[in-house]
Write a protein that binds this DNA or RNA. Structure first.
Lengths: 207, 207
DNA sequence: AGGAAAAATAACCCTATGGTAAGAACGCTA
DNA sequence: TAGCGTTCTTACCATAGGGTTATTTTTCCT
């Protein structure tokens, strides 16, 4: 959902930033200066399974571009039940965008489901990029348009599909996420319990 | 979710375009040329209750800014059940953004719930505005950011709240929409049947 | 390989919501 | 103000999915 990049000659430690560069260059031409800036504000991190990058209730200062592994964002309700808003794998962005765009404290938790690699950005520094390098405006607008479409679709699916249908669709669309994440996380994304998902899987296997 | 405006001296027939202008000027400075362009591509329309502005299955060429009344967008499933994605009142945009951004045929229907007034824009002409007047990029990016936040929140609400809780929230947040729309449309927005909503209302009244 | 921890399944009963159908209330319009 | 269509409510039973707890299977660790 966000953006970015670095110079052509990368130190070995930031090799995976190349993903990000090519990702961006597919969409807009990047000046060397813009690459420099991106490089200067990014920090590559390796994180372990279970690590929490954003804590509910705290200020959100970072946003993450995933280069390896799988993360998720979720909220926790009054009964300590978790509800997954988003999964993120390679080339996806993840953070608490509600908090960032509303300038509020985090309502979400962002945690790593597997050992992962991410590129970390400071939200404020990242936001600077638009004034310094206006070519990012259009790039990001289009990203957001695509994101809006996927959210519209998710809402419609939630309204009109049964739980088994939603599960089938999830498997179909996110096979590369399914392999990383336990079923109870998928259930919390689909809006059902782990037990219901188990039942659904059993029914599905019978056919 | 989109953008717009017109010149300072308006013909009387486009007086309501002023809403749009002030809406935009609150956010970005508008050149006269940009105002001219907006004026040239906009068309004010009065529509009756029940009129359909976008038909499922057809090409989506228009997007609408509402200046009076209330409209909704919905999809229709295999059993002819309708599921409301969005309501739009004064100062909101409405169209089938899934179709527009994906360049597909309409999956949604946009219909007017009341007698309404809208300003109609051709999607292609509207899209031109970004290349001709780059100041709109940032404006629209921020609109989309806000829209993403509201969609994230809706998804989380759908996952974690009960039907009565969602209804309470709807009443609280959209009192100005509730007055226009029949309960079965609200039900289809909340993801429940008209009958369930009726039950919920009865329970609520008892307290 | 062996044991602990995590994840998935199963079985129980319970509750919220759905489907159908009927009737009541409301609101136009003649 | 009568009458008709629309919207809302009620009541019935049906069902999907939830809550709890136990058991099995898988994964992970050393």
């Amino acid at each position: 959902m966000c953006i970015f990049n670095v110079r052509a000659n990368l130190p070995t430690t930031v090799k995976s930033l190349k993903e990000l560069i090519s990702n961006i260059k597919n969409n807009i031409p990047l000046s060397l200066k813009a690459e420099d800036y991106l490089f200067s504000i990014s920090k590559e991190k390796t994180i372990s399974k279970g690590d929490v990058l954003i804590h509910q209730g705290q200020t959100v200062k970072k946003t993450f571009f995933v280069t390896d592994g799988c993360l998720r964002s979720f909220c926790t309700d009054n009964n300590d039940k978790e509800h997954t808003l988003q999964f993120a794998i390679k080339n996806w962005w993840i953070s608490d965008f509600i908090a960032i765009y509303n300038n509020e404290l985090a309502t979400l938790t962002v945690e790593s489901i597997t050992k992962s690699k991410v590129i970390e950005f400071n939200v404020k520094e990242l936001d600077e990029i638009y004034s310094q390098f206006p070519e990012f405006e259009s790039f990001q607008r289009k990203n957001l348009e695509r994101h809006v479409v996927s959210l519209h679709k998710r809402i419609l699916n939630q309204l009109q599909l049964t739980a088994p249908e939603r599960y089938d669709l999830f498997i179909e669309q996110y096979r590369d996420i399914e392999q990383f994440t336990p079923n109870y996380n998928i259930a919390s994304y689909l809006g059902i319990t782990q037990q219901s998902l188990s039942r659904i899987r059993v029914e599905k296997a019978k056919k």
